[in-house]
């Protein structure tokens, strides 16, 4: 997340949005890439995926 590796407890059918919640990240301020591709946060993730969550809303 934001360039730093974190490990998540995955549950079946888990979505990126759920991962964001687990990490305490607001979806309004962050975007996600799955395996290098920009995706909707409603996208499901599996243990084989590399998910990058990064902040884009800073203001100013």
């Amino acid at each position: 997340m934001n360039g730093k590796p974190v490990r998540l407890r995955l549950k079946k059918g888990m979505r990126i949005l759920d991962a964001m919640r687990q990490l305490g990240v607001n979806r309004e301020t962050h975007l996600a890439k799955k395996n290098g591709r920009l995706v909707s946060e409603l996208e499901a993730v599996s243990g084989k995926d590399k998910v990058e969550i990064f902040g884009v809303v800073y203001g100013g």
Binding site: R27, L31, R37, L38, V39, S40, E41, L42, E43
Partner: peptide, 12 residues
Amino acid sequence: DAVVYLPYGNEN
């Protein structure tokens, strides 16, 4: 493939 979800319009 969707690249973004817009919650206010409930659309991908």
